[in-house]
Write a protein that binds this DNA or RNA. Structure first.
Lengths: 128, 128
DNA sequence: ACCGTAGTACGGCAGATGTCAAACTACGAT
DNA sequence: ATCGTAGTTTGACATCTGCCGTACTACGGT
């Protein structure tokens, strides 16, 4: 092959493809660790609450720089919590609910519920 | 009083007393973080599985030094996951089930169940 | 009084983590 | 072809984390 093209992907969904752990490779400790960061937990909660199946990274307005955002999304992806696909110039993020529920039934819901209760309890609700 | 005695505690249960977060001070992120370490998760699982309400630190034979063990138990205590009381020369550890269940219903059980499933799935069972 | 056992505190070390800014790549639109 | 938007990469930095060994304290038993 003469200088392989830089984007020989399926291109159906977009262009580049990201590496994700297979369902069987998802580790509980990694998931818990991924969810133990306030920023990432907030992201996951927002994804779970959203009607959309997939949200672009920029749909969340996190109080950190772009590079930090990239970093957090990678942690979530590598832990197997979210799935990411490129779609044009954006990168869409989706919760891997099916995989998580299959591996750890009730865990994600328990965490989401716990987060909601805590926010409620602490009056964490930020204005507007 | 001339030179306050070094052990003016209740002494009913033992002597010294440890600082624990009150139920309302327990933070979900801290709990998840505490549980995201394999060593600590194992400890919590063992406590949950045990018939005893409280186990001494030395009841667990962790593959790490004493200081590291102390460190892990402190993380668990400060996160509000375990309760520790001195009893003579030993320090007894108990899961704060009631507090955790009240704050985050189903969370602890979901994590314990997830851990059991993962162990099962990966054949993590160490011999003897 | 003395010793042994259980655990703590201190200091150190290597590696992970959260954060940023700046430079870069990929894609869509003009 | 050019530009802007979205996200990545790199390198840096401070902090945290897990780990250790050694020295220390607290308690119970002899």
């Amino acid at each position: 092959m003469t200088a392989a093209a830089p984007h020989t992907e399926t291109a159906a969904t977009g262009g580049r493809t990201l590496a994700h752990p297979a369902r069987t490779e998802i580790r509980l400790e990694a998931v818990l660790h991924a969810l133990s960061d306030p920023m990432r937990l907030a992201v996951v909660r927002e994804m779970a609450a959203s009607a959309e199946a997939e949200l672009s990274c920029s749909a969340f307005d996190l109080p950190v720089s772009k590079s930090t955002t990239t970093h957090h999304f990678r942690v979530l992806r590598e832990a197997g919590v979210v799935e990411q696909v490129y779609r044009g110039t954006a990168k869409l993020n989706g919760l891997r609910r099916a995989d998580l529920d299959a591996l750890f039934p009730g865990l994600l819901d328990a965490v989401l519920d716990a987060a909601a209760r805590q926010e409620d309890r602490l009056g964490d609700s930020r204005p507007t």
